[in-house]
Design a protein around this nucleic acid. Structure first.
Length: 626
RNA sequence: CGGGAUGUAGCGCAGUUUGGUAGCGCACUUCGUUCGGGACGAAGGGGCCGCAGGUUCAAAUCCUGUCAUCCCGACCA
């Protein structure tokens, strides 16, 4: 028998099929490995750190083109299209309308919303450029500006509301540090949806609905994902939840109660701090504390507990309006600052965004032309006069205290003299309690707010989706209004809902793999079945393999036929690596017309006839699909 | 941007300390044997040693600069 080195007859003969999650534009393309441009790597690429990144590279799914910029190769594109398809169907079911918005945005819109500054300047994440006419343009990292402008132009009456629009397309973000392949890339595929409402209740209804839609999407993709309370960050707005895929390599720290009633990103998480160890009230004095600059040094030298000390953080906040505001933050010694909470508090208090928050260093003082400060001995009452003569800083401190610090009645703190601390101090002595807020990081072991018998536990997660109640921030800024029942103009209430499509694909690998390779959930696998002909020199095996391949295609199963003239071992390794959920081996039982059916994830193997294989595969694929 | 590291064949690496004009494994090509878990033998092809300067009779190797990539921190789907 003549062996074809490479098959040139593609499978154009597949039937037209309407299938769950396969819209008409997405035909089933069964394929032969000999035609697939399958390039797998035996060695782990040196620049890939986490399993999912390594496996996607090794399986030939993705190739890096630049830092944070990846090419999706044919197998990956099939996965992405399957995910896209699930997302589209669920979004459509939820009554959303699909659009495609431009990626190139005029700066004007972003200036109107007030985000041009913060998104392009300094640590800004928006790629931006000037065209030949010198106009400023940005590459869309998100689309609130564009969609709100459009809605404002097109929606004039409450009768046209509510409406939800979405799109699936490439987004651009100039990440400071791209990481982990598709997990944090600079060019990535995202589904973003925006809803418009006449009032807040209606927004809340859609938000809740979208929550359910998201749960269904992740479930349909075969992912174990869960929602957590989140900070709404630079996008702004009120309520917000993130959808997390748990994974030890995840970049987010999640705190949850074991009763399942509370789960939040650490950025947002609230808790009840442990009780402080109370000091016996004594007469306040100033004590010598040479070389006792840190909490631990002070504790061991003075026999204190961290919760008996007030520590002070000196920060400089660079604001969107260009101001540089020095801050004094007082925390209980055993607590850490949550910078997200502080940023939000500042934004609210000052009415302007925070571009950057950093600790004040001796070098900063130098460049401001200020004399040295007694770092390590500074107290909450550090004088504003110390800022006198600074070049660009505001001339007085903004002072905040975390709740736990404010509650202490008797404590140790810096005396504002090098090598000296105040012992048994109190807030009255320091001129009163500063503005008190929740500024501390919740951490594992803290008691929960909803039930003090519950404690928080931590785990790591990959954020694959995020839903926000934006409110009227953008519609007001961009003057996007409709006329209400009473004939009055009102700004839209808005929601926004994102899913990182390409990130989700990699998160699926992170959650579903073993030593041998990927174990795709069947709904998003590039192929549902791979048929491995163990020995291409055996005409009987080839004949049977071709037959079962044809049969699978004819019932609408997305099959891959490994017809390469490789040794069986090589084909098994590749099949395991690329992670097709079902494997049919045409091999030593071919002489009796039997196959092996192998489940990739469980490694369970059964020997069966053609009819049995077709029946089993069909039922597995079609019955578990939605 | 700060801290750390690395750039040598498609991939993984050695060679750099002590300068003498490039090597190993995998992959690739051809032939033969093999054929159910990344086969074996033989013969091949492939390198501006990241880039640019400099030192030297001579630079992958030493010096200076520069670029890129990765890891740890500040941003986010």
């Amino acid at each position: 028998m003549v062996l074809l080195k490479r098959c040139h007859s593609f499978d154009y003969d597949h039937p037209f099929l309407t299938r769950c999650y396969l819209p008409t534009s997405f035909a089933i393309w069964s394929m032969r490995v000999s035609c697939l441009m399958l390039v797998t790597l035996r060695d782990v690429p040196a620049d890939a750190e986490i399993a999912s990144h390594q496996l996607l590279l090794r399986g030939g799914y993705i190739r890096r083109v630049a830092s944070g910029v990846y090419a999706y190769m044919p197998l990956m594109w099939k996965v992405l299209k399957k995910i896209t398809s699930i997302v589209e169907q669920e979004m459509d079911k939820a009554g959303s309308l699909q659009t495609l918005l431009p990626q190139l945005h005029p700066a004007e819109m972003w200036k109107k919303s007030g985000r041009w500054q913060s998104y392009t300047q300094g640590e800004g994440i928006m790629f931006h450029l000037k065209d030949r006419q010198g106009r400023d343009l940005g590459l869309g990292p998100t689309h609130e500006e564009v969609i709100t402008t459009l809605a404002g132009e097109l929606i004039h009456s409450y009768k046209q509301l509510p409406i939800t629009l979405y799109q699936i397309q490439t987004k651009f973000r100039d990440e400071i540090r791209p990481r982990f392949g598709l997990m944090r890339s600079r060019e990535f595929i995202m589904k973003d949806a925006y809803s418009f409402h006449t009032n807040e209740e209606d927004l809340k209804r859609t938000y809740k609905n979208m929550n359910a839609t998201y749960n269904q999407i992740f479930k349909s993709c075969g992912l174990k994902a869960f929602a957590v309370d989140a900070d709404s960050g630079a996008i702004g707005g009120a309520a917000s939840q993130e959808f997390m895929v748990s994974a030890s390599s995840g970049e987010d720290l999640i705190l949850s109660s074991s009763d399942g009633k509370y789960s939040a990103n650490q950025e947002k998480a609230v808790s009840k701090a442990s009780e402080p160890v109370l000091l016996k009230n004594k007469k306040p004095t100033t004590i010598d504390t040479p070389n006792q600059k840190s909490i631990s040094e002070l504790c061991s030298a003075q026999g204190l507990k961290p919760s008996q000390i007030i520590k002070v953080l000196l920060l400089i906040a660079i604001l969107e309006n260009g101001q540089e505001q020095p801050l004094i933050i007082s925390l209980r010694g055993d607590q850490d600052l949550n910078e997200v909470k502080l940023t939000n508090a500042l934004t609210q208090k000052l009415g302007t965004g925070v571009l950057k928050l950093s600790q004040i260093s001796p070098e900063n003082l130098n460049s401001q032309g200020l004399a040295a400060w007694p770092f390590g001995s500074i107290g909450p009452d550090f004088q504003d006069s110390m800022l006198k003569g600074s070049k660009s800083w505001a001339k007085s401190f903004l002072r905040f205290a975390d709740q736990t610090a404010a509650e202490l009645n008797c404590f140790f703190c810096g005396a504002n003299l090098l090598g000296k601390h105040k012992a048994f101090a109190n807030w009255a002595l320091l001129g009163g309690v500063p503005t008190t807020l929740d500024l501390r990081k919740a951490k594992s072991g803290d008691r929960c707010i909803h039930d003090q018998n519950e404690t928080l536990e931590e785990k790591r997660g990959i954020e694959v989706g995020h839903i926000f109640q934006l409110g009227r921030k953008y519609s007001e800024a961009l003057k996007a209004r409709f006329t209400n029942e009473n004939g009055a103009e009102e700004s839209f209430w808005m929601g926004c809902y994102g899913i990182g499509i390409s990130r989700l694909a990699q998160a699926a690998v992170e959650q579903n793999h073993d030593e041998a390779g990927i174990c795709w959930p069947i709904s998003i696998a590039p192929y549902q079945v791979i048929i491995v002909i163990a020995n291409m020199q055996d005409p009987r095996q080839v004949e049977l393999g071709e037959e079962v391949y044809k049969n699978l295609k004819s019932v609408g199963i997305d099959a891959l036929l490994d017809d390469r003239a490789e040794r069986a071992g090589v084909k098994f390794k590749d099949a395991d690596l690329i992670g097709v959920p079902w494997r049919i081996v045409v091999g030593r039982d071919a002489s009796n017309g039997k196959f092996e059916l192998v489940n990739r994830a469980s490694k369970e193997t059964q020997v069966m006839s053609t009819e049995e294989v077709l029946k089993k595969i069909s039922s597995e694929i079609f019955e578990n699909r939605c």
